[in-house]
Design a protein around this nucleic acid. Structure first.
Length: 630
RNA sequence: CGGGGUGUGGCGCAGUGGCUAGCGCGCAUGGUUUGGGACCAUGAGGUCGGAGGUUCGAAUCCUCUCACCCCGACCA
């Protein structure tokens, strides 16, 4: 008892000492520990007691998504304004690891890294014409000479400018140029923590090729590099067909992480693997067991003589497709619906089969416009149309866009353009014509796959990569051309390939966590090992822990050393919350058997590792963990 | 931009006209503790988002405004 008491008094002193003079010295009286003890910062290790940032027991109320909550609770990020975040040391370590993985894979694919300016002449954007497509999302500022500068949301223009100056011959191609840097977009609505922000670090690669087959090869190479990146982060992704949006271009794919938190809807066919963003997804519009489908789909109309004559039917109060279909007792597939839009200031009517909805992305593309919105009630009535009873039949002076579903059958029911009446036996193109006929329909769960006719389903996803075959529209405008073998001048063919690093980080957290906290894949964990010393105020514990901390670092491991004088629960919970792959616990109990307890973040069980050869055992445990991960 | 919501100490919250604005966590100091977010004591910390107004008196009522979050529009 007396021994014990004395021991405690000494511990008390030690504790006071440690708080004033920093962490206790090494086992043999100090001097041997690496420098920088004042702040605890080391190359491979960090003392929890010195770590900048604090874990929170409760997530701030503004955080809704899991990743947002966990990243705030762990002190990995801190919000400064809507869609603008600071990365604190732990979060920044993770981001840098992601960055390094991406860099390695881009280099492996043959990429050359460079750094491009954030401030870009606004003229670049006028030259490409994309100032219109980006619209208000393009941050701009004015310098002291009143010159307008754009804050780069992406860098195709700058690359095209560089290429116009440095690429002269087909011998200079192909090229894969990439940068990893901050980009700025004035998003209308930032959300979900790091999932959608206004300032973000992005890896953007631009491929430059002499011909289409070169572009195909670049596209293939970079796509494979993307798969490698995700695989190294243990992140399952789905490559889907995508719309190219404001970036422009033809073919485009997105890499999606399936998650309910995701903003994108993916239309997917389990049978043949067809997968596309709902913005882009196609589907088979044939109506099954449709006896009335007189002209076969795609044939336009049949012989007009076989078609029944148009008739007017009274449909009082039936203003919606469902009401009309019920009243006349036909399925909604036998009706046509008309919707009114204003595109580029022009009023237009869009007609589509009654059971389908309009996909505004497809519509925008079909119209080649950049501003599309639903018409207001005022605009509709000014155009002389009666909402609820409108149709393109007999309409003059209004541009008509038809979804190709108008050709999928004959004898539709649609509005008579007078209140209380509809028309029966309406056929395209006998009874109305369209200025544009295109696929502008929205695919949904239950529709048929365009490839194999199996049933499509829908899932949500987070877009963690997007690749585009841009083509030549930017290079042409920047005079980025080269001389081919025959001495002819041709525009460079461009591709563009982006990964948002912060979003990727958030996607990993969305994908890999439990009720205790984050579960980092080893490749991007801020530290590989969390060393917890229990009863850290006891001299013998702290001495042994210091030694282990030292040894682990010497062997090249990244260690977060929880040297705080705190209860075991606090330390264990923080280790779990932070998601460090391997936890080592040193306590009086384990010290007695000259061992530490090792527990993987993903497992419940722990094991004792004897001091002898500890670093080797830890290293091999981590290697096993790496292998066992998918 | 439309709809909804929230602004009170670092975080989570209570406080709907009346005394000095309160609680939990966190923080500081001392003590007791220590294998899954310990306990006791003492203490620091708040222009109640901002401006204007009503009132003897405003965190509380009114007007305006700002910020942030969610849904939609839009957007990589």
């Amino acid at each position: 008892m007396r021994e014990r008491k004395r021991c405690r008094i000494q511990e008390g002193r030690g504790r006071r000492h440690s708080k004033r003079a920093g962490p206790p010295r090494g086992p043999d009286g100090g001097g041997e520990l690496p420098r920088n003890d004042r702040t605890g910062a080391r190359v491979g290790g960090m003392r929890f007691s010195k770590l900048f940032g604090k874990t929170l027991r409760q997530a701030p109320a503004e955080a809704e998504s899991i990743s947002h909550q966990l990243l705030l609770r762990t002190g990995m990020i801190a919000q400064e304004a809507a869609g603008i975040y600071s990365y604190l040391p732990l979060g920044w370590r993770v981001l840098r690891k992601i960055e390094q993985i991406i860099r390695e894979e881009m280099d492996k694919a043959g990429g050359q890294e460079l750094l491009l300016p954030v401030l870009q002449p606004f003229e670049f954007w006028q030259q490409s014409g994309r100032n219109v497509a980006f619209g208000e999302s393009l941050f701009t500022m004015t310098d002291r000479r009143k010159r307008i500068l754009a804050l780069g949301p992406t860098h195709e223009e700058v690359v095209a400018d560089l290429v116009s100056r440095y690429v002269q011959s087909y011998r200079d191609l192909p090229l894969l140029l990439y940068q990893i840097q901050t980009k700025l977009r004035d998003e209308p609505r930032p959300r979900g923590g790091l999932l959608r922000v206004r300032e973000f670090i992005m890896k953007d690669l631009y491929s430059l090729d002499a011909d289409e087959s070169g572009l195909d090869e670049s596209y293939r190479l970079v796509s494979q590099a993307y798969r490698n990146v995700y695989a190294r982060m243990d992140l399952p992704t789905l490559m889907i067909e995508a719309d190219s949006g404001a970036i422009g271009g033809k073919e485009s794919h997105e890499f999606m992480v399936l998650s309910e938190t995701g903003e994108d809807e993916i239309i997917h066919c389990a049978a043949c693997g067809y997968a596309a963003n709902a913005e882009k997804a196609e589907f088979n519009k044939a109506v099954e067991s449709d006896a009335g489908a007189a002209p076969s789909p795609g044939s336009g109309a049949g012989n007009p003589r076989e078609l029944l004559p148009m008739e007017e039917i009274a449909t009082p109060e039936a203003r919606t497709i469902v009401q009309v279909a019920d009243l006349v007792d036909v399925p909604t597939t036998e009706t046509l619906k008309s919707v009114f839009y204003v595109a580029g200031g022009e009023f237009l009517i869009v007609v589509i089969r009654g059971d389908l909805d309009i996909n505004e992305t497809k519509l925008t593309n079909a119209l080649k416009c950049s501003d599309l919105r639903l018409a207001t009630e005022d605009e509709v009535s000014k155009s002389g149309l009666v909402a609820g009873f409108a149709s393109p039949v007999g309409l003059k002076g209004v541009r008509v866009v038809a979804d190709d579903s108008v050709k999928s059958r004959a004898h539709f029911i649609t509005g008579a353009n007078k209140s209380g009446y509809h028309l029966r036996n309406i056929n395209y193109p006998r009874d109305f014509q369209a200025d544009v006929v295109a696929d502008v329909a929205l695919a949904r769960t239950g529709h048929r796959c365009p490839r194999c006719r199996s049933e499509l389903s829908s899932v949500r996803g987070i877009e963690v990569g997007h690749v585009f075959k841009l083509g030549t529209f930017i290079s042409e405008r920047f005079g980025a051309s080269f001389l081919d073998r025959d001495g002819g001048s041709r525009p460079v063919i461009m591709g563009s390939y982006g990964i948002g690093l912060g979003r990727l980080l958030a996607a990993v957290v969305e994908q890999s966590h439990d009720d205790k906290g984050i579960i980092w894949p080893q490749s991007i964990a801020p530290y590989q090992v969390c060393l917890c010393s229990l009863h850290a105020d006891r001299a013998e514990i702290s001495a042994a822990a210091e030694q282990i901390y030292e040894d682990l670092q010497q062997s090249g491991l990244e260690v977060l050393f929880d040297d705080r004088i705190d209860s075991p629960g606090v330390k264990f919970n923080d280790a779990d919350l932070l998601g460090i792959p391997l936890r080592l616990t040193l306590s009086p109990r384990t010290l007695e058997s000259r061992s530490v307890e090792a527990k993987r973040r993903t497992e419940k069980e722990s094991r004792l590792l004897p001091f002898e050869d500890l670093t080797r055992q830890v290293t091999s445990l981590l290697a096993e963990t790496r292998e066992s991960q998918p």
